[in-house]
Structures are given as structure tokens and as C-alpha cells.
Nucleic acid binder design. Structure first.
Lengths: 222, 222
DNA sequence: GCGACATCTTTACAGTGGAAAGATATGCTG
DNA sequence: CAGCATATCTTTCCACTGTAAAGATGTCGC
């Protein structure tokens, strides 16, 4: 498609005049949202390498320069995409952490589940070199989402001791590292090293159990 | 520079003949290694986005199509770069883990130190979408390097129990996650949350201490 | 010598991000 | 309701990229 402006010829019933109507209006109306949706479609289908400005524009059915007005450049579009991702990510974490029967690692499982459900988006969210780190929308969405990590350990967002911060940091790093190794396919060979029939999920449980080693017996991996 | 073949005019002292000598030979002789070195220079200077086939060729002073013969395509060059990175990475891990006075987390510190010293290279090494995962050289170098992770926990490379595998996986995920969060600048704001004067290194120690919580007292963080 | 081969350059092409200018619709002001 | 400023979108253009293909140049075995 070379452009989305297609001309249809119509005849006005009453006046009899021939009218040249455009089947798609020159002004889209909600192009910003449409472009974000299109970009995410492309991201999901072709991965981050395939997510180009022009591919997103094609998917949305507009000219390749249309995104410029709304997002400035490619970095701007990716940043908006990442910010939206962090909003949904934060919501998923919040739901998991604040559930009444939430167990110790449920936030972590939600963290991993979001990444598995949106692999390319998740990787983009943590790929600083492709994002505008100064963007306020991104910063706010990210901060809001990541605060649930401390909340998952029942810790305040400020005034933590060094030991507390070490524990929160450790939990985050553990889950984040597992997630990225998983997305990079680096864990695919692990079950082969384990006893016959060990599933990836069982390994994740074992990892959490190892992290919990030494905690009070009854609360262990509750 | 349009090419690296420059012609110098020289006079042969004995024969008196005029000779057209090229100051740079048509055949480089060791272009493969030179290209790898040039590529790493570019990678270090301009990051992964700036590491293009043509940039590496420019840096090495050859035509932009010269790398094709040695590496096939861009993925091939990046794969060779990553394989070389894994070899050096493995050597660094081996040295840290096998040192006679090696402490429990010294392998982890070497892991982080390598990434900090070679940030773009390290990120490339774990960016599967840019590499040829089927490449034997890469697979061998990576396998060899990562085996030191199990060694750091004094565990065999095969026949592990699920619990052992969970501990190894946990250690790897913890350190890998910390490393990537650090490289992505995601930890820059953490010291501000901690008590006045807390350094990033103290936080890392706290993270290791939290991971060691519950281990036998005297051996704790030895 | 001399021909097969490896190595490197030149040329060409489709794709990309981005700048600039033009086209078209919308909304505001009188 | 007319007309104009502005927002939105398209067209055109340029420099850069990866890659393919063909040509140039050197090396080596026979």
C-alpha cells in the first residue's frame, strides 16, 4: 500500500451530483493510539528488530512520516510503547502482590508471566539504549510499577536499612535475571541436567526454595 | 576514505626502475582478526547500535564489503565477537573461581566486573536475537564459560539434584539480573533510598548477605 | 609460467530514519 | 458564517545501512 487515501466515486441520491469521497479520511482522528497499537502488533509479530517506524506506519495504514508528528522519532515511539508496557506491568504486579491470599513469590511469578506473555515488549522496557530515559511518562510509569517490588516484601518505599535494601535488591535481581535468561533461551538446556522428568516450573520452585533456605520453617515458601 | 589502496611512487635503487608500490597491500593478511579488533573498538566507542558492518570495515580501513568473506553477514561478525567475549569471560571467571583464597561470591564479582569493563560486549553476548545461536564456536565458548558458574558453588557439571540445580540457577539469576540492571542504569537511584553515605558496593554486599541469610554462621559470607 | 583459488574493491539496490515542504482538515475568531 | 491559523497527514528527498554480484588483485600449487 502506497498510502491510505483511497478515492471512491459516489453519486448523491438527492442532488444527482458525482462526489469524490475518500473511504479513509485524511485526518485519522486517533492516530496516536492507533500507532501505538500497530507498533505493539509489529513488536509482537516481528520482534524488536522488526519494529521500525515505517513498519508501524504501514501496520496503521498511514504514511511513513505520520508518526513523526506524534512521537518525534523512533525513540519517542519506543518510549511511549515502553511506558504503556510499564503501566500494564505495574497493574499486573499490583494485582499479584495485593491479592488477599498472595504468597511470598507470587509477585515474582507475575513478573515472569508478564515477560513471557510480552517478551519483546518486556525486553524493550529494559533496553535503555533504545529509550528516552528523560521522558517523564516513562519515568513515572516505571517508578510506579517497580515500587510493587518493595511492596512484595512488605517493605516501605523509603527509609530502608541497608540490609532491607539488600533483600529487596536481591529479590528483584533474582527474578529479573531469571526472566531475562529465560527470554534469551539460556535456560532451555537446564532440565536436561536435572533428574528425568524435571519441569522448568519445578526448577523455578527449586530456585525460590534455595533463596528461602534458612527462613523460619513454617513460613518457608508459604 | 574511499578505499585503503594508496599508491606510492618509489625508485628501485639498484635497477633504477620506477616502481608503483602500494603503501597498503591489497591483501591485508590478517583481516579477520583486524576486523574483530576494529569491531570491538567500535562497540566500545559507539555501543551496539553504532556497531555496523560498515563502521567496522571503516575502522579497519578496508572496503565495506570486505567483512563478508570472513563473516558472511553482520550476524556472523557479531557472533564471532560474542564468542571471543565468552572466551575471555570464561577465563576471568575461571581465574576468580579457582583462586586459592577464593571466597563464596568472588565468581559473582568477577562476573559483574567483566560486564562493567565490557558493557556493550556483555550485552551482546546475551542478545540472542543478534547472534547465530547455532554457531559451534559460540556454543562451545559459552558452554565453557558458564560451566564455571556451577564450579563456583563447588558443584558438578552433571547429575545434579533438583535442589542443587535450584541453588546454581538462583546464584546465576541473581548475579545476572544484578549485572543487567546495573548496566541498564536501573540501580543508579538506589543509594539515595539507603542511609546517607551508602555506596553501591555496600549494597552489593548487602545483597549477597541477604542471599546468604540462614547459612551456617561462621561460613556466612566468608 | 600459469591457472585455480582466496581475498579485497566497486557497483548496485532495497530498506531504514529523519528533514523539509506541501496538502488537507479542524477549530477559533471576527 | 467566512476566513484564517493551526494541527494533522502525505510526498519527496537525502544519507546511511546490509547484502548481492561482478570485477580486480594477489597467492599458491602444479
Amino acid at each position: 500500500m502506497l498510502g491510505r487515501t483511497q478515492v471512491d466515486v459516489k453519486v448523491d441520491f438527492y442532488s444527482g451530483k458525482i462526489k469524490f469521497m475518500k473511504s479513509t479520511p485524511y485526518h485519522h482522528g486517533a492516530l496516536r493510539d492507533a500507532l501505538l497499537a500497530a507498533a505493539e502488533t509489529v513488536l509482537r509479530r516481528d520482534g524488536l528488530p522488526g519494529m521500525t517506524l515505517r513498519a508501524a506506519a504501514r501496520e496503521a495504514g498511514v504514511s511513513h512520516a505520520a508518526p513523526t508528528h506524534h512521537f518525534g522519532d523512533l525513540t519517542g515511539l519506543l518510549t511511549a510503547l515502553a511506558a504503556d508496557g510499564f503501566r500494564r506491568f505495574g497493574e499486573a504486579l499490583r494485582a499479584a502482590v495485593t491479592a488477599p491470599d498472595a504468597r511470598r513469590w507470587d509477585g515474582a511469578r507475575a513478573y515472569i508471566a508478564f515477560a513471557v506473555a510480552n517478551p519483546a515488549l518486556f525486553q524493550l522496557m529494559f533496553r535503555t539504549d533504545r529509550l528516552d530515559d528523560a521522558n517523564e511518562s516513562l519515568r513515572a510509569a516505571r517508578l510506579h510499577a517497580l515500587q510493587h517490588i518493595a511492596a512484595a516484601r512488605h517493605m516501605p518505599a523509603t527509609d530502608l536499612s541497608v540490609a532491607q535494601l539488600g533483600e529487596v535488591l536481591g529479590g528483584w535481581a533474582l527474578v529479573h535475571g531469571y526472566t531475562l535468561l529465560l527470554l534469551d533461551g539460556r535456560l532451555a538446556g537446564l532440565p536436561r541436567l536435572a533428574p528425568e522428568g524435571t519441569t522448568a516450573d519445578a526448577l523455578l520452585d527449586a530456585m525460590f526454595a534455595a533463596a528461602d533456605a534458612g527462613r523460619a520453617g513454617p513460613r518457608r515458601h508459604d
